[in-house]
Design a protein around this nucleic acid. Structure first.
Lengths: 170, 170
DNA sequence: CTCAGTGCAAACCGTTTGCAGAACG
DNA sequence: CGTTCTGCAAACGGTTTGCACTGAG
């Protein structure tokens, strides 16, 4: 199947960056890899593999799950895409070419929605960790779980279930 | 097998707290549940299910994995134990009755070692998140991945592999 | 006796892998 | 044309579940 008859005429800029990475590594730039990249770079959402498969199918592409996983592996390795595990039992993928290069995540325990926010404080913490523990930070993860404004306004509350008496109210 | 002939004569204080939780919930306090709790409360380490199974076997207890999983579920629900996923492909469990009630984790990418540290900054971040996004924080996760002092001194370095040119140069 | 817990093994499910055939360079 | 990729299906591995059996009250 030739490029000319494809539904995607030309790779978008971000996809072209991925193509460059592949060439740098001596790897073939295939139609499937571009299609997967196109989907991931085409949204600001945090997509699961099923999400990606669905969107590919919707745009007429029929690409196997194995290929999607293998392409995501390359995208993560290229550092153009970040892999997240929000404890849902599967991973989510987010491209890193947004306006917020480094950000943290708020995850709503009710609706599963993910919001991004910046936290310059982490820098300070990393600096302290380096000095205090001799630990050399490479990457980090700051996730805050709770109730988003929408769910809270809808009257949702989180029911606790632990020991009735506070263990250590610290 | 009666309690009297067991290697663990009487439940330790932490295990007794778990017993109290079970009673509160109207659930039986069984020998297996106490044995699993004993292992988890008996260390400051972050244990995997295999670790727990191994330690139980070493002390003569033969408890099925299913029971361990089911007991850990209860321990987590009681809020006496915290569940962690450091991206190793399995979960780890840590009891929350140490001297550091709330702490974050440093994870060494080389040796897998986990160090705990406190970060009061998170409180500040949560406060800001509440005000700015209307998001009600419930729990959080701050993990810093990198190289621990030991591995760094042993000459280990982390090799990067991304695009050769900095990404932000879009 | 009754009811929940336990242990085994099978099921689950997201992810990985092996391999024959198709594409890339 | 050789090498790598793709797609399918089977394998994998941590976790969960179904079910007959055991044990506590």
């Amino acid at each position: 199947m030739s490029r000319a008859s494809s539904t995607q005429p030309a790779p978008t800029p971000f996809v072209r960056l991925f193509g460059r990475y592949l060439r740098e590594q001596g790897l073939p730039v295939t139609q499937q890899r571009e299609a997967v990249a196109e989907v991931v770079f085409g949204t600001a959402e945090h997509l699961s593999v099923d999400d990606i498969e669905r969107r590919l199918r919707e745009s007429g592409e029929r690409i196997g799950k194995a290929t999607i996983y293998r392409t995501l592996d390359l995208l993560v390795r290229s550092r153009l895409v970040a892999e997240h595990d929000f404890g849902e039992g599967f991973k989510r993928y987010e491209h890193r070419l947004s306006r917020q290069p480094e950000h943290e995540h708020l995850i709503c325990l009710e609706c599963g929605g993910v919001t991004e926010f910046r936290s310059p404080e982490v820098r300070v913490v990393e600096k302290r960790i380096r000095e205090e523990f001799g630990f050399e930070p490479s990457r980090h993860k700051l996730e805050i779980y709770g109730l988003c404004a929408t769910c809270r306004e809808a009257g949702v509350t989180l029911d606790e279930d632990g020991l009735t008496c506070p263990i250590e109210t610290i």
